[in-house]
Simulated scan of single mutants.
Amino acid sequence: MASKDDIRSSRRLHRRTFTPEHIATAGESLARHGTAWAAELSPGGAATFAVYLGVAFEPPTIPLIESLHEAGHQVLLPVCEPGRLLSWVYWTPSTAFVRSAYAPIDEPEGERLESTVIAKAAGIFMPATAVDRDGNRIGQGGGYYDRLLQGLDAAGQRPPTIAVVYDDDLLPSGSIPAEAFDRPVRQVLTPSGVVQLHDGPEPA
């Protein structure tokens, strides 16, 4: 079995072969399927969803963020803090972005809220470089989301989570080594649609 670092590097190299047209089309499809997933989780109407800003060759999430906002939902975007912690900022169309001091991502400017706000969200869209069909996820290597989910799981307050990847970033079962601190996901959002990995609930 390949290491997480090897898989992460391989997927990043593969993503660099994508054309701007491929990436743009993927963003439109992710927005459509992601907004439909959000609607299923919020049958009463507007809700709050945690998303993230996809940069470079990552699956683009701006179309999803804008689509959720147009559907009446509130969107929270992450800010990296010391100690591999995340804070969160509510996004609006006027939100400005700056480069993170702690990770290779762009972050929103605005009032920063502690991660306890995520416990009240209807769902979390999570970044990933790969996910296997057992639900094991490889992120960017910083450990921010694993730590976030550990805290939510410990409190029994984890909202539904869905990892966002390109279609061929979804790997066969057993492809990704699982470690004790990992928090598996049960659903994956790809340009082709939402993939349900298991019938059971997410671990609490």
Rank of each mutant, 00 (worst) to 15 (best):
G141K: 10
F49S: 02
A163Q: 06
G123K: 03
A96S: 15
R137H: 02
H14S: 13
Q157S: 15
Y145F: 10
I23V: 11
I124G: 01
S115A: 15
D134V: 02
T17G: 13
A71H: 03
L152D: 05
E66M: 03
A121L: 13
A155K: 06
S100A: 05
A178D: 08
A204S: 13
R8G: 04
P191Q: 11
A103K: 04
P177A: 14
G72Y: 15
A154L: 08
D182S: 00
I65T: 09
T48Q: 09
L86W: 02
L152A: 03
R137Y: 04
G141N: 08
R147T: 04
P63Q: 09
P201Q: 04
S175K: 13
G143K: 07
F49P: 00
V194E: 08
A155I: 03
G54I: 07
L68Y: 09
V55N: 03
G139Q: 10
S94T: 14
W37S: 01
G44C: 05
D134M: 05
A101Y: 01
P59L: 04
L30Q: 11
F97Y: 15
P82K: 11
E70N: 10
F97V: 03
G110E: 12
W91C: 05
A103T: 07
E40G: 02
P177K: 15
E28M: 12
A26F: 10
L77Y: 10
L68R: 02
L148Q: 07
A96K: 11
P159T: 03
C80M: 11
I62C: 00
A26K: 10
A39S: 13
F97Q: 08
H198P: 00
L85F: 00
G151L: 06
S94D: 14
L152W: 01
T190V: 03
L170C: 03
T116R: 13
F97T: 02
V51Y: 08
E70D: 13
A130N: 09
W91K: 05
S42P: 00
P184G: 07
S100K: 06
A155T: 07
F49Y: 15
D146H: 09
G174I: 13
P104Y: 07
S94K: 09
Q150A: 14
L113G: 04
E179V: 01
Y90N: 08
G200N: 02
I23F: 01
R133P: 00
T92Q: 12
A96N: 11
L64T: 12
E40C: 08
L77P: 01
P191N: 10
G174K: 15
A26R: 08
S115M: 11
R147D: 02
D132Q: 11
A31W: 05
A180T: 09
W88I: 01
D182N: 04
G123R: 01
E109L: 13
F57R: 12
D5K: 13
T92K: 05
Q140I: 05
P63D: 10
R158P: 05
K4T: 07
A130C: 10
